[in-house]
Design a protein around this nucleic acid. Structure first.
Lengths: 335, 335
DNA sequence: ATCGTTCCCGGGATCGTTCCCGAAAACAAA
DNA sequence: TTTGTTTTCGGGAACGATCCCGGGAACGAT
């Protein structure tokens, strides 16, 4: 006895059309027969064949997701958020990681085309400088929603963090501790997120009528680390900073070691804050103030956005924002 | 012009059967017509409809994956490894996380059934005490491969780390530094991995003819932290340990803070090693010796294993082992 | 001329659904 | 009784691919 609507139909001596209608809660079916069908389906442990349904309905029920890196708190949390929404809405995920490589990104898009995904969620690679592969025309109208890492230009649907605002807020927190010279070590400004944070920082400096000092700005081109010599010069120099804001918590950890080796105490001699609120930040000595991103929320918001686009709903605003949170710990509080 | 084999067939004035044969590199087709078909397919940017293929071939091309937690270095790396193998072999992934919850695990298995996955990879939740839902009979012969977190009992196909060996090795490394009293803080022994490590440690102690001291073993029931008072008593007591092995790097970080507050210096006064080689371990002060697990390899090995089972290949051994690596840093080296 | 082979190809069934269309039955209205 | 309306159902055509089966053409052998 095959577990198909045909099987149920033969078992009950009715036609597969009727079974289908009963199962899909269609109007044109007697209440009594519907009952019989549902009971039989349950008894036979029937599961509709999704593949056949999809073929008939001309849809795949699959959402493609591209992230730059799977092994990353931020993105794995985002995926978690995406997954939960997708599951609830009956979609499956096709997961891909670009490894910050544009070629792989293009390859993933090709895979998505073949798999006939109904929509695409993407956080673009840092190395991507050409965005043709996200072109809707090429993708024959498969909707695309970008999250966190978005394309420059505003013609897309995006979900982003409030980089400007949170950076402003974080800077204000530092200033509120009674300091005015903040060393700001930032990531590459060609990346939108770093740029927005930079702008938020500058704006806060300006609003507080602090004077802009070029020497207090360092770009860490190499995301793993930066030039010690320059740093030591600044940290030991005449205009010694009273606080440091640094682009992520790993860098903050290293900075902590460096400061210790220079016998500069945190927070007594200098304040320090990181970014991204990595789990170990609270275990550092002293615990490091950081910024927590609602990455899971970002994922779920992006997924909901995409699904409503798939369903063809009209969306008022093509750009959504989620709010980050400042996590204040000992490293930015004077004893 | 629809992009189907029928479309190509009409375009070339031949039958869809011939097109299908040409595309699938079948024997019964004229070399010349095959050429024409391939060119036409290319020109029309034809992609075979996977859904239709799957319906006809009665397979889904999907592998189900359950991990306890997505937001976790170990598992996200494993997923990366799985993904790469799966992609190469033409399978898609259906990802699920149990949140260490058996109910969710069962739910995921149900989802997998509906989606008609061809195989399942799973790292079981710590809370799972009943394994019926992984029963092959229920799953009508969908192969299952367990990795890292396996079911107790040996009747399954598993891929695991060399917990016993690496723990032995790590302990030997500590002893080689000239110490004999090692405080061993372990995770719950009802979990197989922790148990194996514990056994490896004990074996090494024994082989080195060191006497077993019950006071040097502490179980951290609460995985986030453990009882400070007991620890301080041990650390300051008469039989003060010369080294500490602790179940993961987060705990090691916290231990580091505790030691500092007690004015015990690492590695001068005491050696310290963690586990799992979290990225921040190298940035700690001092950098912490740890154990690196080849999680990505574990994922790819498990995926390859599963796929060969799906293909019905005979496998000599139902249990595979991948090797971890001891990463020696300053925290276990006397100056 | 007949037969057997080999090489290519088309027809049509099939996978498990959905859904349109028409039709039988039941019932109400004339 | 006849006609119209509603309710309920079955037949069969899709969806896009694979694959079995049978058959025509070409060719050499008899």
């Amino acid at each position: 006895m095959s577990k198909t609507i045909q099987g149920i139909a033969e078992h009950l001596g009715i036609s597969k059309s009727t079974v289908s209608r009963a199962l899909n809660n269609h109007a044109d079916v007697n209440k009594e027969t519907k009952e019989r069908v549902l009971i039989a389906a349950n008894e036979m442990n029937y599961h509709p064949n999704t593949i056949a349904q999809n073929l008939r309905k001309q849809k795949s029920g699959i959402i493609g997701v591209i992230v730059p890196e799977l092994v990353n708190q931020f993105f794995s949390k985002a995926i978690k958020g995406i997954r939960e929404v997708a599951e609830r809405e009956g979609y499956h995920l096709l997961l891909s990681h670009s490894d910050e490589n544009m070629e792989r990104e293009i390859k993933s898009i090709n895979t998505f085309e073949k798999a006939r995904v109904e929509g695409i969620l993407v956080s673009v690679s840092n190395e991507t400088n050409n965005f043709d592969h996200f072109d809707n025309i090429k993708l024959n109208d498969v909707p695309v929603v970008f999250f966190d890492r978005v394309c420059p230009g505003l013609e897309h649907d995006i979900v982003v963090g409030d980089n400007f605002d949170i950076s402003f807020k974080a800077t204000q927190h530092m200033i509120d501790q009674g300091i005015s010279r903040i060393l700001y070590i930032h990531g590459p400004l060609k990346l939108l997120n770093f740029k927005r944070r930079y702008e938020g920082h500058l704006e806060c400096i300006k609003r507080n009528n602090l004077n802009f000092n070029r020497k207090l700005f360092v770009e860490a081109n190499d995301l793993t680390w930066f030039d010690h010599q320059i740093l030591i010069k600044v940290l030991k120099g005449p205009e010694r900073p009273e606080g440091i804001m640094i682009y992520n918590d790993y860098a903050a950890m290293k900075m902590l070691s460096l400061l210790k080796s220079l016998d500069i105490k945190v927070p007594d001699d200098i304040l320090l804050m990181g970014f991204n609120n990595e789990p170990f930040a609270q275990y550092a000595d002293p615990p490091i103030t950081s910024v927590n991103h609602p990455s899971e929320e970002m994922g779920s918001v992006a997924a909901e956005y995409l699904i409503s686009k798939i369903k063809g709903l009209e969306i008022e605003d093509s750009s959504k924002m989620v709010k980050s949170e400042l996590i204040i710990r000992d490293s930015t509080q004077k004893p």
